[in-house]
């Protein structure tokens, strides 16, 4: 039985910044440490990455899962094939098949980004009565992660100027799928000063 829900949020930043922050994977396990306990990569095939990730649900329940994240440039990310790790450990993913989809698009009227989060949970009938509880947990974690990202984005905008993606474009900065990011957003490089935190710190 499939339970689907959608969260749509207007984010006060440019699309290039929102996507840059998403691809700036070095922050995942540090900025989001309240929900993510560990992270490693099992496999990379083109625009598909298989992650192994430790999560903290509701602040205390620790689980480890693997999943595939697939990127459709410039602003669409799909997460699927979520499995328990180790496989034999009885866990949520043995019963519920979850697919998540995040899209960043330009707001049609304002200089802002629209983030659309879609989630589909395919579950057996005996878990159906709990679908809203599962939805609540997923929404809460998603919201917390988004808020942490937005705090980071707004602080960077404050110091380096709105829409400044220089540090994401910099040759020495690693990003997931960096060539795609550069191909889509290099034209938004700014001449803003100070361009980087290192300059501001000097």
């Amino acid at each position: 039985m499939k339970h689907r829900f959608r969260v749509v949020e207007e984010q006060d930043c440019t699309v290039a910044v929102a996507i840059g922050a998403y691809l700036d994977c070095e922050h995942y396990v540090h900025l989001h440490r309240s929900i993510m306990t560990k992270l490693s990569i099992d496999k990379v095939e083109g625009r598909k990455v298989t992650w192994r990730q430790g999560l903290r649900w509701l602040g205390f329940l620790k689980i480890t899962q693997t999943f595939v994240m697939e990127y459709f440039p410039p602003g669409h990310f799909k997460s699927y094939d979520m499995k328990a790790y180790p496989r034999w450990l009885p866990q949520f993913h043995h019963f519920v098949k979850t697919v998540m989809d995040v899209r960043y698009t330009k707001h049609p009227q304002r200089d802002a980004t629209v983030m659309t989060f879609d989630c589909e949970m395919d579950m057996p009938f005996f878990l159906w009565p709990f679908r809203n509880v599962f939805q609540g947990i997923v929404e809460k974690m998603h919201h917390l992660k988004d808020q942490e990202d937005l705090d980071m984005i707004h602080r960077r905008d404050k110091f380096f100027g709105r829409g400044n993606i220089n540090s994401y474009l910099a040759e020495g900065q690693f990003l997931l799928f960096k060539d795609d990011y550069v191909a889509h957003f290099a034209h938004e490089a700014q001449r803003a000063q100070p361009a980087t935190a290192a300059e501001l710190n000097a």
Partner: peptide, 17 residues
């Protein structure tokens, strides 16, 4: 974590970090 991915992209050059 990302060591295995650091040679995948032309636009990333660790020597420039």
């Amino acid at each position: 974590i990302y060591g295995c991915m650091k040679t995948l992209y032309k636009s990333f050059n660790p020597a420039k970090t």
